[in-house]
């Protein structure tokens, strides 16, 4: 065979291989058409199959919140009382479940004390905060703050979230109740109460989430989401209002600080026709919105953030996010047809 004939034949063989469907992907390195969501520095691929389990064995109702523990495991809190806590590894493999006594399981905060992990669960149906070990043993409970004089009965207290400082102090957001922030010491003893229902600087309409912000170590503070107002508010640790950040159109759930950024699940877009119009919102260390996976690209005009809203029907009612040590994100959803969390892999 001469060289010309060989080239012709070998190119035919190669062409044959390329057009054979089962083999053609050998050369289609870019053949996957994975879609990307997000903007600027924070973009993601979407994995809808992460963490899917057999619903007859390990069911969920609303997936309310998630956290990563010291072992790198992903802890999910649901209000299904067959298994209120579901623990996965990062690949989505089920590791263990526990918890049958938390019908209103809503807020989940991981607390590290002397090398051990604990959880703080808020239960708005039990009107309590429950501290447990990472494997589900109850350490103590906190009932409604009767001593404050701000509550007539325990039914008015419907806590949605907790935040814990380095010294173990606990701040509770009563987001479905009377809209106060209640401050306890590490033993669960009442220290202070502030906030309340309203639209003033220091008040809330749906104080849904709270977190401790120690990114500025000299000036630690609290961030509280006023979800119905589409505002994130900052307070000092004594409860004095400092500043607020408007996020027009975004019903933000709890703020989640990971490294220098703040992440939020946005339950829904304020002016959308459909209620299942949520998305994700990410702020940088200057508290500027830099990325909104599933929504409009963030833009500022005269230092005012333009209204944000859902652009793709990816999320239904995102309720919380968890960022793992690989920068990937897990999204827990409320009222989404009993679906398991969605994983967003950072690109």
């Amino acid at each position: 065979m001469d060289r010309r004939k060989f080239l012709k034949q070998s190119s035919l063989v190669t062409a044959g291989l390329l057009v054979t469907p089962s083999l053609s992907s050998a050369f289609s390195l870019g053949a996957n058409n994975d879609v990307i969501v997000g903007h600027n520095s924070h973009t993601y691929k979407i994995d809808l199959s992460w963490g899917n389990l057999n619903p007859s064995k390990t069911p969920v109702n609303d997936c309310h919140e998630m956290a990563q523990d010291s072992k790198g495991r992903i802890v999910l809190l649901t209000n299904h009382t067959k298994n209120n806590v579901i623990i996965y590894d990062k690949s989505g493999k089920l590791l263990e479940t526990w918890g049958t006594d938390y019908p209103g399981a809503h807020g989940l905060t991981l607390v590290k004390e002397n090398g051990a992990d604990f959880l703080l669960i808020t239960d708005y149906e039990r009107h309590q905060i429950i501290k447990t070990t990472i494997d589900g043993k109850v350490v103590f409970t906190i009932d409604y703050p009767a001593d404050t004089g701000k509550y007539n009965s325990k039914g008015e207290f419907k806590p949605t979230e907790t935040a814990v400082t380095e010294n173990g102090d606990i701040y509770v957001a009563d987001g479905y109740g009377n809209q106060h922030i209640i401050h306890y010491n590490h033993k669960g003893e009442l220290q202070n109460i502030f906030g309340g229902r309203g639209t003033e600087d220091g008040q809330f309409l749906n104080a849904h989430g709270i977190c401790y912000d120690n990114r500025d170590v000299q000036n630690p503070s609290l961030l509280v989401s006023a979800r119905e107002l589409n505002v994130l508010k900052r307070f000092d640790l004594k409860g004095n209002f400092i500043e607020s950040f408007n996020v027009p159109g975004a019903l933000i759930c709890r703020p989640v600080i990971h490294k220098k950024d703040i992440y939020f699940a946005v339950l829904r877009s304020k002016n959308a026709v459909n209620s299942d119009s949520g998305f994700i919102l990410i702020m940088n260390e200057k508290n500027e919105v830099v990325s909104c996976p599933g929504a409009t690209s963030p833009s500022y005009q005269n230092n005012e953030l333009s209204e944000l809203y859902q652009t793709v029907r990816l999320f239904q009612h995102p309720h919380d996010v968890c960022i793992d040590d690989d920068e990937n994100m897990y999204v827990a959803q409320w009222n989404s047809g009993k679906t398991y969390p969605i994983k967003l892999t950072r690109v």
Partner: peptide, 16 residues
């Protein structure tokens, strides 16, 4: 290496 669970083009709908 191409096995993927990621959402592909055309699988999710745009919002109105």
């Amino acid at each position: 290496t191409e096995t993927t669970n990621y959402v592909q083009e055309g699988e999710i709908q745009l919002a109105k």
